[in-house]
Write a protein that binds this DNA or RNA. Sequence first.
DNA 1: ATAAACTTTCATTTTTTTTTGAAAGTTCAA
DNA 2: TTGAACTTTCAAAAAAAAATGAAAGTTTAT
Lengths: 168, 168
Amino acid sequence: MEIKEAQLEFIQTWGSLGSSWGIPKSMAQIHALLISTPHELTAEEIMDRVKISRGNANINLRELNNWRLVAKVNKLGERKEFFKADHDIWNMARNIVIERKKRELEPVMRFLNNMESTDFTGNEMEIAHFKNLVSELKEFVQQLDKLSEMAIRFNDNVVFKKMIKMLK
Amino acid sequence: MEIKEAQLEFIQTWGSLGSSWGIPKSMAQIHALLISTPHELTAEEIMDRVKISRGNANINLRELNNWRLVAKVNKLGERKEFFKADHDIWNMARNIVIERKKRELEPVMRFLNNMESTDFTGNEMEIAHFKNLVSELKEFVQQLDKLSEMAIRFNDNVVFKKMIKMLK
DNA sequence: ATAAACTTTCATTTTTTTTTGAAAGTTCAA
DNA sequence: TTGAACTTTCAAAAAAAAATGAAAGTTTAT
């Protein structure tokens, strides 16, 4: 199989995986292209290989940059910008955890804290149930939060290895 | 604050959280309604409180049932079906992990295994890079897989507690 | 100061996903 | 065996999300 063909298949797979986790398909596909290529690429080349428009490429490259998954690289004597993915899978996972924690865990936590300090009126049983739910969800989110903190603190697979060794 | 109002807010929050993780909004909202209510509800009541159509309620209740997050309950002398969420947060998390593992981790693993046993033609450097990527991703997915296996084996927060104690 | 090279923006279009609701299907009591 | 009560299906509509591309903006060499 031609390597370019394999990369293309990988780009498709990564794209649909992204979709089912709420990541725009093009964003995941650009990322897939960049991690499967050893060298930096220009916006042109990305548009061309992933078959997307300039605007789409630009926006999603910026987003990948926000997630710290892709960096802009300037080459001496070259006018164009080049894009380079962080090729370290553990860094990648770490940055994704950081970003999702910030975007999703934190707002939910704020909501739960808010609910916890509210007084309710209405059916007593419903109130008791709801309060209990909020407190259990808080505990759960806190644990997830700690887990993600741990994952963030380490930059390789040591955490996983340790966890697995201990728990099996 | 009226408890029904709080539940409604919770339903909205849970719905948009679901959306950003690739779960249909209505599905997450129905789930939110069911976990925030101590008693079983009929399709009618769900349609009414979440403000969705009969078809939507039916399809998403079935899906929640597939995920083992919601069970159908029949009451003696009642023709209608009632729906009841599993109220245990740790069970809930466990079932979500099981389902996502099955739906997403396993297909990716198959893809990677497939790529690993393929021979490539083309630029040597690109081939080497791609092979390395596939092997690192495999290792990563395997670790995730083990982690999810662990999470599945336990039905409370023991795993988290243990992990956290060990790693802090 | 100019213009070519390149990047960014954003209103519009397209695609994808989700929802609707009416019809078909099922179950069950009489 | 009929029909009322309830559930399921699925083609069509609506909504939401993502992508396009042309125009505006920026940078840099001369």
